[in-house]
């Protein structure tokens, strides 16, 4: 399973933000996307995940169903317990066993707690735990370490390392070092020219 991005152009709200993005991710490899705020990291990840169509180029992946996405929001229901939340996503993806995942993310003691009572970091851990129960090989992670403490970042780093060791791959938009051996891609050079041109117009006017 590998992921290849060919001449990809992505747009947000009809305005192109990135164009000509090219990279490939091989099994067992992780790529970190960096760039200033607003450069289009989230838009790029959402486009790869299939949540919005690219306006140019293509995404080559053997199976669209192999990808899963973790965005800024965790998809957690406050009224359900931690175990119920995780079990729901597991069942949606045809899995039944969540005990190992709860342990990996240090959530076992919180399993019966309503998710609404969790701290921001604990919620984030629960949101990331969903990745494990999807059983998918390509992880698209948008700022996965937001509101995680140092220990939890290390914990998540281990989970990602194990995922990569098992032949999985990951595309991560993040500025925080998770202790992974990764290739860093700076998105700044891929900024769409249309936007720059419009910027000049504004200056000119």
């Amino acid at each position: 399973m590998s992921l290849k991005i060919v001449d990809l152009g992505v747009a947000r709200g009809g305005v192109p933000v990135l164009e000509g993005v090219n990279f490939a991710v091989a099994p067992g490899e992780a790529v970190v996307l960096t760039g200033p705020n607003g450069v289009g990291k989230t838009t790029l990840l959402r486009t790869i995940a299939g949540l919005q169509p690219p306006y140019d180029g293509k995404i080559v992946v053997p199976d669209v169903e192999a990808m899963t996405y973790a965005g800024h929001a965790d998809g957690i229901k406050a009224a359900l317990s931690v175990a119920e939340n995780l079990m729901f996503w597991a069942r949606v993806h045809g899995q039944r066993d969540i005990s190992g995942t709860l342990e990996d993310f240090a959530l076992t003691d919180l399993a019966s707690r309503p998710a609404g009572q969790l701290s921001a970091g604990q919620k984030r851990r629960l949101g990331l735990a969903r990745l494990r129960v999807t059983g998918r090989t390509i992880w698209l992670l948008d700022e996965p370490t937001v509101s995680l403490d140092k220990g939890s970042v290390d914990l998540f780093g281990q989970v990602v390392r194990r995922h990569l060791a098992g032949g999985g791959l990951a595309v991560i938009a993040s500025h925080i070092d998770m202790g992974l051996d990764v290739r860093v891609i700076d998105l700044t050079p891929y900024r769409a020219r249309a936007k720059v041109a419009r910027g000049y117009d504004e200056v000119f006017l």
Partner: peptide
């Protein structure tokens, strides 16, 4: 609001 809809859209 809580992001579930995005995750459901990328689910099987």
């Amino acid at each position: 609001e809580d992001g579930s809809l995005d995750l459901l859209a990328v689910s099987p």
